[in-house]
């Protein structure tokens, strides 16, 4: 049996889609037929990805740390499409430090990027979804919000209190919004990736890299596609009864 996921007619926004996991999610969504707005801070990089994806993608550059920029981006989306079906909150940064050396600036930047942004995009995104979430007969068509958390947000890690806190908060936000928005047909789920091959993990010192690899039961690093396929499932009607969940995609990693 072949199952094909078809997102034709759906409009998606993926934050942090200029590279890594977000770019792969945008590719997979566009291939499934969705119209994808790809976000990042650099218009040029986003343009390049959009050229690769053909007509199914367009850039929506803004800094997720700036609530005013988020508002303006959603106003643009509102004017242009009046529709949003899928929102992927993926933009994120990793900045490790032992607790004694954590700076205020680091805390603020990490939480602004990884956590506060999720609240603001979900606020505007869910409003847009609520408006486009009923079909002509008034039935909820539904929307899907997918938040990219982390295995670190679930179990914590040495030297990662700030990152872990910012990602654990994303799980709380996910579970709360799932309850609040279920009545509007909007599902809210999180993905908790393990150790994935992107720019974020390429800068890790060699000994730490080896340690991480040896903690993965499946004995391979994850690929952005592993995460994108899970996002595709959560975005699709196959997951129409799935909400408030945190799906670990980590090859059986133990931290």
């Amino acid at each position: 049996m072949t199952i094909q996921i078809d997102l034709t007619g759906k409009v998606a926004l993926v934050t942090g889609a200029s590279r890594g996991i977000g770019a792969e999610i945008a590719r997979v969504f566009a291939r499934a037929g969705a119209h994808v707005f790809v976000n990042g801070r650099n218009e040029q990089t986003l343009q390049e990805l959009c050229s690769e994806l053909g007509g199914n993608a367009e850039p929506l550059a803004f800094d997720v740390c700036d609530p005013k920029a988020i508002k303006e981006a959603f106003q643009k989306l509102f004017k242009q499409t009046k529709q949003l079906d899928i929102l992927v909150n993926n933009a994120g940064i990793l900045d490790d430090a032992l607790i004694g050396m954590v700076t205020e600036a680091q805390v603020e930047r990490t939480f602004a990027t990884n956590t506060f942004s999720v609240l603001y995009t979900s606020q505007y995104g869910s409003r847009l979804m609520q408006r486009s979430s009923r079909d002509s007969s008034g039935n909820a068509k539904g929307g899907s919000i997918i938040n990219v958390s982390s295995i670190i947000g679930r179990v914590g890690n040495h030297g990662q209190a700030v990152y872990a806190g910012s990602k654990a908060a994303v799980i709380g936000i996910t579970q709360s919004l799932a309850k609040e928005l279920a009545g509007s047909g909007i599902r809210v789920n999180a993905i908790a990736p393990g150790f994935i091959d992107t720019d974020m993990t390429r800068t890790i010192p060699e000994d730490k890299y080896k340690e991480r690899m040896s903690s993965i039961a499946m004995k391979r690093i994850g690929t952005p596609e592993d995460i994108a396929n899970t996002a595709l499932f959560l975005a699709s009607d196959l997951a129409s009864y799935v909400t408030g969940q945190v799906i670990g995609v980590d090859g059986g990693m133990l931290i």
Binding site: F74, Q75, Q130
Partner: peptide, 12 residues
């Protein structure tokens, strides 16, 4: 109500 106002008057 907000959604209804936005729909009717075409604003966000």
């Amino acid at each position: 109500l907000v959604a209804a106002l936005e729909d009717t008057f075409d604003v966000m």
